[in-house]
């Protein structure tokens, strides 16, 4: 049983506390829920509902409690990166116009209390269908994606969703294959500067897992490596570079330095789970919708969870 969360909700949206309590109960997340800023100092989790709060109050709360905050927001992704993630040590943003943001909130609260919850299953309903494969070489990336995409029911999605899912899976796998592995002794990257045309073969201790999963609301991709080196700061620095400068394709050796941003840009929920030094898992979820406009205007959720090595 997960430990009890003390959650305080700072919101001016009518009924939001009741909705959250009901959702936490439904998800069987054990929590005691307060309302108001007065409880922020003692709460494990501070939910800031930015949708109806003055900017100064949001900033003040983030300045004091960012590491324990979930920011529920309807601001666009660029603003969330430049004004929230880059300025405060915040690890949790939920898109306030997401269809299932309440469930996202319950999952986030649950994982903040027990960051040992891995995989797509935590983010999809119990009825989700999940298919996974192991990738042992760069040459297998595209064929594995094509094969897994063949299992995904895209009937409830807009037509271009398949292309976006393929792009996301490709970026995540390419990063996991080329960028994640380090020499275990020197901790120096092994393949980071390798030309991506050179199709490397991974050692068994370097292989990568990919999963595609779907439930009634979302299609998800999860890619995990065996190194656990991705920090929140690395991600935020990368997102900030790409969102503030459209000239972000890099001419360095190795990759083009844009993969994570393209995955974030394509996702409706971008979730990173890290066990330091052991594994990194990146999940990208797209809402099932036939409406491209809804997909594009959906504020992207960002969640970074970390646990110390061996804490599971």
């Amino acid at each position: 049983m997960a430990p009890l969360n003390k959650i305080t909700i700072v919101s001016r949206t009518p009924g939001v506390r009741e909705d959250m309590v009901a959702c936490l109960e439904e998800a069987q997340v054990s929590a005691v829920v307060y309302e108001g800023e007065a409880f922020a100092a003692s709460a494990d989790i501070v939910l800031i509902d930015q949708r109806a709060l003055p900017a100064t109050q949001v900033e003040s709360l983030l300045a004091q409690h960012a590491a324990r905050c979930i920011l529920l927001t309807d601001h666009d992704d660029g603003e969330n990166i430049t004004k929230a993630l880059a300025r405060f040590p915040l690890s949790h943003i939920i898109g306030g116009n997401g269809r299932s943001w309440l469930r996202e909130f319950a999952v986030t609260a649950q994982k903040m209390a027990s960051p040992t919850l891995w995989g797509l299953a935590a983010h999809l309903s119990p009825a989700a269908v999940i298919e996974s494969r192991t990738v042992g070489s760069a040459a297998a990336i595209n064929a594995t994606i094509d094969e897994l995409l063949g299992h995904v029911d895209l009937k409830a999605s807009f037509g271009a969703a398949e292309d976006f899912l393929r792009q996301t899976a490709n970026e995540l796998l390419t990063n996991a294959v080329y960028n994640a592995p380090v020499d275990r002794t020197s901790q120096q990257p092994k393949y980071e500067q390798t030309d991506r045309k050179q199709k490397i073969i991974l050692l068994p201790s370097e292989t990568v897992e990919i999963a595609f999963g779907t439930d009634e609301d979302n299609i998800g991709i999860a890619v995990s490596d065996q190194f656990g080196r991705l920090t929140r700061e690395m991600i935020v620095r990368h997102l900030l570079k790409c969102v503030t400068n459209t000239n972000f394709i890099e001419e360095k050796r190795g990759g083009a330095g844009a993969g994570l941003y393209l995955a974030f840009y394509t996702a409706n929920q971008f979730v990173v789970n890290v066990e330091v030094g052991k594994r990194t898992e990146i999940l990208c979820l797209l809402e099932k919708t036939k409406r491209y406009r809804h997909y594009r205007t959906r504020v992207t959720s960002f969640n970074y969870f970390t646990q110390a090595k061996g804490a599971a």
Partner: peptide
């Protein structure tokens, strides 16, 4: 065209 990745964007540029 069914997709493009970041390295593909660089090749295109």
């Amino acid at each position: 065209v069914k997709g493009i990745n970041s390295c593909g964007i660089r090749e295109w540029v």
